[in-house]
């Protein structure tokens, strides 16, 4: 196919992203859901720009971190997340 071949690591990242969006979907109110989606997508996009694509160790670390956060987010007790930006 004409599509660019994705590396294994890229696939892992996309799969994690999909996992986050699915978890966001399971949250009750649309407001919470939107907030989660926005935070998650901002974070992924930020890292996709800032992280050097050859910095495998750091990406591995981020993947591990992401999976941990995703597990927390999946818990039904977790209703929403928020992010605070301090300048």
């Amino acid at each position: 196919m004409g599509a660019t071949k994705l590396s294994g690591m890229q696939k892992q990242v996309l799969s994690l992203y999909r996992g986050f969006l699915r978890a966001a979907r399971s949250k009750q109110t649309t407001e919470d859901r939107r907030r989660i989606e926005t935070i998650v997508s901002t974070e992924f996009r930020k890292n996709s720009k800032e992280v050097d694509r050859k910095n495998f160790q750091y990406i591995e670390y981020l993947l591990r971190l992401g999976h941990k956060q995703l597990d927390q987010l999946k818990s039904p007790d977790m209703v929403s997340i928020s992010s605070v930006k301090i300048n």
Binding site: L14, S15, Y17, R18, R25, R45
Partner: peptide, 26 residues
């Protein structure tokens, strides 16, 4: 590629289906 994931997720929801990961990437 992140947008593509979002598109597939939105489609899943709209059509009430579940797309396999391998298919989604194609």
């Amino acid at each position: 590629s992140l947008d593509t994931v979002e598109i597939v997720m939105a489609l899943e929801e709209k059509f009430n289906i579940s797309v396999e990961e391998a298919d989604a990437q194609n």
